[in-house]
């Protein structure tokens, strides 16, 4: 394949990564923004979402789409419920103290991961996509007879991957509407601004926290349900999305939702493009170091506003 088609392919793959990442990172950002909690176990919500999707689709006989639809509803719900329970049982009792919640969520990370290892096992397991037509993509090229469309060998994408991009975009728009247009969103924003004042005005801050923590985990699980037909479920799969989500949330400005989406696109696309052309390890080293430097020198994120 030539450079042009190759780049187009990398961009499309990058968009798929960016779609999943924006959902996962949105969950982390929401939790940090509203609760000021850094949830280190966030990657495990993603992993559990994938494993739950595998489990649910295994239970449902018939067309793979039926299982997939049920998994897409059930996995985020179950994961959200688990997260609400851990908020009530653990985080709330720590009074959301930043240091102690980080340590506790590291503990939750290992509990989730190791329990999965014990029950689900160490193997990676696939989930069948609900539909998966290969769509060849055309490429415009100049020939002796002028410009003409070609279908270069290897330049294609599956219908499912296009669906992932569309679904993620829809979900993000829905979240945006919920946060800006509904009463629940108003409560969240009020709590984010100033939890003590919110409390004084009768907002049930404890409930808002639990719900936000649940939604955060559910978003990660939803991202995982979407990804699991492309990438198999495995008990260690939570590490990578956690790191990437951290990167996205930091670049986008801690707790800023539009910043998170832009950063997810940026990171997802560059991750797709870089890993096509460079050694993935070197790319990760550079990316990780760069993000650490952003935190050191621009703590409000590249896209965040400068302090007044």
């Amino acid at each position: 394949m030539q450079f042009g088609p190759h780049l187009l392919l990398a961009i499309l793959e990058g968009l798929v990564t960016a779609s999943i990442l924006s959902l996962t990172a949105m969950g982390l950002s929401l939790v940090f923004g509203v609760m000021r909690v850094v949830n280190v176990a966030h990657g495990e919500a993603y992993m559990l979402g994938a494993v739950l999707a595998w489990w649910v689709t295994g239970l449902i006989a018939g067309h793979p789409a039926a299982g997939f639809v049920i998994a897409a509803i059930a996995a985020p719900l179950i994961m959200g419920a688990l997260a609400v329970a851990s908020d009530r049982l653990v985080l709330k009792r720590l009074n959301y103290d930043p240091d102690r919640t980080i340590v506790a969520t590291i503990g939750l990370l290992y509990i989730a991961q190791q329990t999965t290892l014990m029950s689900f096992g160490p193997d990676a397991r696939p989930v069948e996509p609900p539909f998966n037509q290969r769509i060849a993509l055309p490429w415009l090229e100049r020939t002796e007879e002028g410009w003409a469309w070609f279908y270069p060998w290897g330049l294609s994408i599956t219908s499912y991957k296009l669906f992932v991009i569309a679904a993620a975009a829809l979900i993000l728009v829905a979240i945006w509407l919920i946060i800006t247009r509904t009463r629940a969103g108003l409560l969240m924003r009020a709590t984010q601004q100033d939890s003590e004042t919110a409390q004084a005005f009768g907002i049930p801050v404890g409930t808002v926290y639990s719900v936000v923590f649940g939604i955060g985990a559910a978003l990660a699980a939803l991202g995982a349900v979407l990804v699991v037909p492309i990438q198999q479920a495995h008990y260690l799969m939570g590490g990578e999305p956690l790191l990437l989500s951290f990167i996205v949330v930091i670049i986008g400005g801690l707790g800023s939702l539009p910043g998170t989406v832009i950063a997810a696109l940026l990171i997802g696309l560059s991750d797709g493009i870089i890993s096509v052309f460079f050694s993935p390890t070197l790319a990760k080293i550079i990316a990780t170091l760069l993000v650490a430097m952003v935190l050191v020198f621009r703590p409000r994120g590249l896209l965040g506003k400068a302090p007044a």
Binding site: R93, V103, I111, Q113
Partner: peptide, 21 residues
């Protein structure tokens, strides 16, 4: 006993922060 021995570490972290910081 188990391959998932890090479960102990996870439980210990959560229980320690909760009950015996």
């Amino acid at each position: 006993i188990t391959l998932a021995y890090m479960l102990i570490a996870g439980l210990a972290l959560v229980l320690l922060t909760l009950f015996a910081p």
